[in-house]
């Protein structure tokens, strides 16, 4: 398992979680470079298909991080994201992929250390799970 280098994508909203990731940097908190952040205006904007694409393209884990509950800059975007994450967990497990490879977190912009903790938490979790079961099988592409 030591040779396994997971790939983890973090979709973070600019208002809170992305800012928390920035703060983790300012505080020089260290986490595994396997975690890469993609910024979005609001986690409520993240489409089901975007998350599935991440897995199909080889992400071993994905997490979505939005504002604290009740503090979404767009009122309810983070809660919509949470519900989509719950739904996607079922979609993934139906397809034979552990739903816990996807997770939702809520952060304020001041929670830099929490961001680093989450990055570590997800890294440990995904390491424990091993490579995404898709990553052994080449895809045949989308016949679009």
């Amino acid at each position: 398992m030591s040779s396994f280098k997971p790939k983890i994508i973090a979709f973070c909203c600019y208002n809170c979680a992305y800012a928390a990731a920035d703060l983790a940097g300012t505080m020089r908190l260290q986490y595994d470079p396997c975690v890469s952040v993609i910024g979005v205006p609001c986690t409520g904007a993240i489409d089901l298909t975007t998350v599935l694409t991440a897995f199909e393209e080889g992400a071993d884990g994905v997490f979505i991080a939005g504002c604290l509950k009740g503090e979404c800059h767009y009122k309810v975007g983070n809660l919509r994201a949470l519900e989509r994450v719950k739904y996607l967990k079922r979609v993934l497990s139906e397809a034979g992929i552990d739903g816990d490879r996807l997770e939702m977190y809520f952060l304020s912009a001041a929670m830099g250390s929490r961001f680093a903790e989450i990055a570590k938490e997800m890294t440990d979790r995904i390491r424990g799970m091993g490579p995404l079961p898709l990553n052994g099988c080449p895809e045949e592409g989308e016949g679009k």
């Binding site: 599935l52 694409t53 979609v91 139906e94 034979g96 992929i97 898709l134 052994g136 895809e139 989308e142």
Partner: peptide, 20 residues
């Protein structure tokens, strides 16, 4: 799209690539 993705992932988990 969600279903197509689910089908692809399901078969890939089983080691059988499909085209959708």
């Amino acid at each position: 799209e969600v279903l197509a993705s689910s089908i692809r992932m399901h078969y890939r988990v089983a080691g059988v690539p499909v085209n959708t």
